[in-house]
């Protein structure tokens, strides 16, 4: 028992109990303190963003973790083990050397061979002055249309690959757009093509992880297939559309769809 309790003696039994109890309480308290301290350290050392993305990636369904080389037809089946960061992939060069078999993309969305794409539906365009422009791709743009509000980062803000680049709201849904690259925001704005960021890369030319060419067509085709399944009624069998195309302002056109699930899958939330 405790020294201040009537009946306490400095006898072996009481000392053993006191030691064990103090040990238990200290273990519980130190466990909580360690978890809090480690969490705080992760945020201070900027590891938290990558950690959150890695944990989110693990929660993505396997079909949404397909390797870019499978999307490009270079391999028959491969799930990405690197959280879409090919800069850390030991087999990247081996697979990239294989011939790609990119199919024609139908469904009302197109892509540009001039742009590099991130799986979170953003594109990157390297500019002549060494900066990069980052924007939403056509599929995401068709889906959201005109957002109700947009929260762009201030100039000078650092962004990290697969961390949050900017936020939008549409019909009560919060959308966090993932950053396609590491860098510092130098300008932001909106034009007829949508909202964009101008980013100075942390490591210029370090964009190997972004999709290009045949990988993009394969990926967008898979994304359109996913959308078709998600938009089909729970009772109806999955069926192919007969040549239709993705219409703009989809969130307004189909308010009854399960937009939480669609947006989570589109913007890579686990």
């Amino acid at each position: 028992m405790f020294p201040w309790v009537d009946g306490f003696h400095w006898s072996p039994n009481h000392i053993i109990f006191l030691t064990l109890f103090a040990g238990v309480v200290l273990t519980i308290a130190s466990t909580i303190a360690r978890a809090v301290w480690r969490t705080s350290t992760d945020f201070q050392t900027h590891r938290a963003t990558d950690m959150c993305w890695q944990l989110n990636f693990k929660e993505l369904p396997e079909a949404e973790r397909t390797c870019r080389h499978e999307l490009a037809g270079r391999v028959s089946h491969r799930t990405c083990p690197n959280a879409f960061d090919c800069r850390h992939c030991a087999q990247y060069a081996e697979f990239a050397a294989l011939p790609a078999r990119g199919g024609a993309l139908t469904g009302g969305v197109s892509f540009s061979n001039e742009l590099l794409y991130h799986r979170g539906h953003t594109w990157v365009r390297p500019e002549e002055d060494g900066t990069c422009t980052v924007g939403l791709d056509q599929l995401a743009d068709h889906m959201i249309g005109h957002p109700d509000s947009v929260q762009l980062p201030a100039n000078g803000t650092g962004i990290e690959t697969s961390g949050v680049a900017w936020r939008m709201t549409k019909n009560g849904h919060e959308i966090s757009v993932r950053a396609p690259m590491d860098g510092t925001v130098v300008a932001t704005g909106g034009n007829a093509d949508g909202w964009y960021l101008r980013v100075r890369p942390t490591k210029p030319g370090d964009l190997r992880h972004l999709l290009r060419g045949a990988e993009v067509s394969g990926w967008l085709a898979a994304e359109l297939d996913r959308l078709q399944v998600q938009f089909s009624s729970a009772d109806a069998p999955v069926c192919m559309a007969d040549g239709g195309t993705l219409m703009p302002e989809l969130m307004d056109a189909m308010p009854a769809a399960d937009w939480d699930a669609v947006l989570d899958a589109t913007f890579l939330e686990g």
Partner: peptide, 23 residues
């Protein structure tokens, strides 16, 4: 889990669960 601090805390606490299991 969409709140980053919750997600990181969950991850860190989960790593310490073996201590809690022993306790």
């Amino acid at each position: 889990r969409k709140v980053p601090s919750f997600l990181v805390f969950e991850h860190q606490l989960h790593k310490l669960v073996p201590v809690l299991a022993g306790l």
